[in-house]
Amino acid sequence: MPIIQSVERALKILDLFDERSRELTITVISKRMDLHKSTVHSLLKTLQSNRYIIQNEENGKYMLGLKLFERGNVVVSNLDLRTVARKHLEMLSDTTNLTVHLVILDGQYGVYIDKVEGSGVTVVYSRIGRRVPIHTSAVGKSLVANKSNDEIKKLITGYQFTKLTEKSINSQEQFMAEVEKVRLMGYSLDNEENEPGIVCVAVPVKDYSGKVIAAASMSTPVAKATSEKLEEYVNLLKQCTFNISEELGFNYQKAKLLKK
């Protein structure tokens, strides 16, 4: 596999910073990289424009930017997320006998990071590590509904609205209308859009800052998906995601006060 030299050099610059070298001059970076200052300057400016590097205005030295902290938090939160969520997912599955999923957003797809198989229904399409389209899945809809319309339209640029079943959404217009419904309801629904005979409901999970970092869902046979049952499942799922989000540090009471 070919190595892209400029990318490799940029990553090596980031690796120069540690506990003993919190700030570095361009001269020091050039020497350690064995590169001309002009080359290093271009690399630093690129990293700086993307907030991976910042420059101390007082002494001109460079240091790591907050973007790395943000990226690192994504990794850590995903690891913590599964550990925190697991007991709540198991409890929900035990209560309902349904299959419960935990999914995160990866580009234009949702990715299953955990699954608790229920005794009441076997869900064929889901397995840990599998990607699921955002337009046909309840989890996908919940994962993007918190974003602005402009962010969603940018996300789905070039997206293929493939019909997996007769009930699948097949256009951007339909998808945006569905997202608006999710925002109003506070949950999302997959009505046999991924797998015939299976209905799925999903609710988002939030981190300490209130950002949606995942979605939890439950799947049930369509024959058992009465309006009363779906309402019951949604309420149980909301309580489950409330507990997960709260354990991750999200303060629902504070969030309510800030909205007033």
Rank of each mutant, 00 (worst) to 15 (best):
residue 44 L to Q: 04
residue 90 E to F: 01
residue 19 E to T: 10
residue 17 F to N: 14
residue 221 P to V: 14
residue 103 V to H: 12
residue 35 L to N: 10
residue 196 P to K: 06
residue 80 D to R: 14
residue 44 L to R: 07
residue 169 I to D: 01
residue 174 Q to W: 00
residue 171 S to I: 00
residue 84 V to H: 08
residue 12 K to D: 15
residue 108 Q to T: 12
residue 208 Y to H: 14
residue 140 G to F: 03
residue 181 K to W: 00
residue 224 K to C: 08
residue 24 L to K: 10
residue 215 A to D: 09
residue 32 R to F: 14
residue 14 L to D: 09
residue 87 K to D: 07
residue 208 Y to C: 10
residue 200 C to K: 03
residue 162 T to P: 01
residue 172 Q to Y: 00
residue 84 V to F: 10
residue 218 M to G: 14
residue 200 C to H: 04
residue 251 N to Q: 03
residue 85 A to W: 01
residue 228 E to C: 01
residue 259 K to S: 12
residue 128 I to T: 14
residue 258 L to V: 11
residue 103 V to N: 13
residue 136 T to R: 02
residue 205 V to R: 06
residue 19 E to W: 11
residue 110 G to F: 11
residue 202 A to N: 06
residue 244 I to R: 00
residue 141 K to L: 06
residue 56 N to M: 08
residue 98 L to F: 02
residue 147 K to G: 04
residue 105 L to F: 11
residue 229 K to P: 03
residue 85 A to P: 03
residue 125 Y to C: 06
residue 45 K to L: 13
residue 200 C to G: 10
residue 256 K to Y: 05
residue 237 L to Q: 02
residue 222 V to F: 11
residue 116 V to H: 01
residue 233 Y to S: 02
residue 129 G to K: 07
residue 73 N to L: 13
residue 108 Q to S: 11
residue 259 K to F: 03
residue 187 Y to D: 07
residue 128 I to M: 10
residue 160 Q to T: 08
residue 238 K to N: 04
residue 161 F to V: 00
residue 98 L to A: 13
residue 44 L to V: 08
residue 81 L to E: 09
residue 104 I to L: 12
residue 104 I to G: 13
residue 154 K to T: 07
residue 109 Y to C: 12
residue 103 V to S: 14
residue 156 I to S: 01
residue 215 A to C: 09
residue 170 N to M: 00
residue 191 N to D: 13
residue 153 K to V: 07
residue 127 R to S: 14
residue 10 A to D: 05
residue 40 V to E: 07
residue 52 Y to V: 08
residue 201 V to F: 04
residue 66 L to I: 13
residue 31 K to F: 13
